[in-house]
Amino acid sequence: MASQQQPPRIAILGAGIFVRNTYIPRLAEISNLFVLGAIWSRTQDSATTAVDIAKKFFPDVEFKWGESGLDEIIQDASIIGVAVVLAGQIQVDMSLRLLKAGKHVLQEKPAAASITELERAISSYASFNPAPIWAVAENYRFEPAFVEGKKLMAEIGDIINIHVIIEGSMNNSNPYYSSSWRRGFDGGFILDMGVHFISGLRMLVGCEVTSVSAVTSHVDSTLPAPDHVSSTIQLENGSSGVFVMVVSSRSPKVIWRIVGLKGTLQVERGSKDGKHGYTVLLYTADEQVKSWFYPFSGVTEELKTFLSDISLANLKKDCSYQAEPRLSYLEGARDVAVLDAMLESGKKQGVPVQVNRF
């Protein structure tokens, strides 16, 4: 009788807020699906802090730090997958280093800091043969509200108009407010946060944004520039709409609304019975309103998918396994490309800009 396949052994690079507050708790929920071998950070203190938290769920996890610790992870053949949860400016280079060493990588969003970096990354990745899985963590593509909302799009008929309104809450009560790398990021919180909202839009409409015309501004001096973007968007299916994002608002609101010939679909962030998530509303042609609430679960679902993918890929040593498309690096690249075009248009006082195709 064939022996049961062992769960994949993984490592985490990064020991910051998101690893401590999100990755470790979400991974703990699915701890039967993998073995957590190590958590790495640049410094010994941050690595040990994260490992102390993780040991409650993963008693055998080790801390690694510095260049020597990184080399140990790279050379450890038992570690087949690595989550890269680092500053946006260094994630691509770190991911490529791991991929070249044969590790499957789940890299946190955004996929890259610029179009130039995206092009270099995609070119480098294409040169790897065989190529391990390179996934970008974009939990919105795994949130049930968007998975189910996408199915409901058929109910509203041809799209007449789209509007996405994002009024964020990035103030000093937010744990990411003081994050130094986000403040040193070209595009600031607009790029870092905005990829989520673009991915939600692209997921629902099921096609690409082809061009944008945007105005950007910097009003709140406590935030990096810009802190606002208002953009018209043109989709390849011929429809159009608006995307408005304010980084920090006193009255946060996050909403996607798509008006069709036969009805309207709306996805809005909120809470119900003490759980945070999304309400999906379908306004039908016969003036009925149907409503569903889906609690957040996208991070857990994307982690489960990545673990499943690397387990199956590990069985097929020829790298012929086709990973889940929603996790692909190209999907993450397409989110960044839309925002990059908006930021470029904003710098040019609203001149229409074509979105780079990946």
Rank of each mutant, 00 (worst) to 15 (best):
G88H: 13
F34Q: 03
A54T: 12
G37S: 15
V92I: 10
V61H: 06
M94P: 02
V92S: 13
N21W: 01
D93A: 14
D52H: 12
I80A: 05
R26E: 13
D45N: 10
Q4S: 15
A54S: 04
L86I: 11
S46E: 07
V19H: 03
S41W: 04
Q44I: 06
M94C: 12
P59M: 06
G14T: 10
I24A: 00
I39K: 06
A47L: 06
T22Y: 06
S41D: 07
A15P: 12
D60T: 15
F57C: 02
P25D: 03
I73C: 10
F58L: 07
F57D: 10
W65A: 06
I24F: 02
G81S: 04
P59D: 03
A28V: 10
P59Y: 03
Q89L: 13
F18N: 08
A50T: 02
Q89H: 14
I90P: 09
V84Q: 06
I74E: 10
I73M: 07
M94Q: 09
G16K: 11
L36N: 14
S95T: 07
V82A: 10
T43Q: 08
V61D: 00
A47Q: 05
A47D: 03
F18M: 08
V85L: 13
I24P: 01
W40M: 11
L36A: 09
Y23R: 02
G16H: 02
G69H: 08
Q5C: 08
R26P: 00
R20I: 00
K56T: 12
L96D: 00
F58P: 09
T48M: 07
Y23P: 00
S31C: 10
Q5D: 15
R20M: 01
V92C: 04
A38M: 04
A54I: 06
L70V: 01
T43M: 00
Q89N: 09
N21I: 00
P8L: 08
Q75D: 10
V82F: 05
N21L: 04
Q4P: 14
I17K: 04
I30L: 13
A77W: 01
G69E: 15
Q91N: 12
V51Y: 02
A54L: 06
S68C: 08
P25E: 08
S95M: 00
F58Q: 06
S31V: 05
G69R: 12
K55P: 07
M94K: 10
I80T: 15
A28S: 15
F34N: 07
V85A: 05
V82G: 11
E72Q: 14
A11Y: 06
W65H: 14
S68Y: 07
T22P: 00
G66T: 02
T22Q: 04
G14A: 09
D76Q: 01
R20L: 00
S78Y: 03
I74G: 11
I12N: 08
E29T: 13
F34S: 06
L13W: 14
D76T: 10
R20K: 13
L36E: 12
I53D: 06
L27D: 00
G37H: 14
A28I: 08
A47Y: 10
R42G: 15
A38S: 15
I30D: 08
Q75P: 03
Q75F: 00
F57Y: 13
R42W: 04
A11G: 08
D52F: 04
I73G: 07
Q5F: 14
S46D: 09
A87Q: 12
G37N: 12
G37M: 01
R42I: 09
V82I: 13
V35D: 13
A87C: 14
E29P: 02
K64P: 00
T48L: 08
A87K: 09
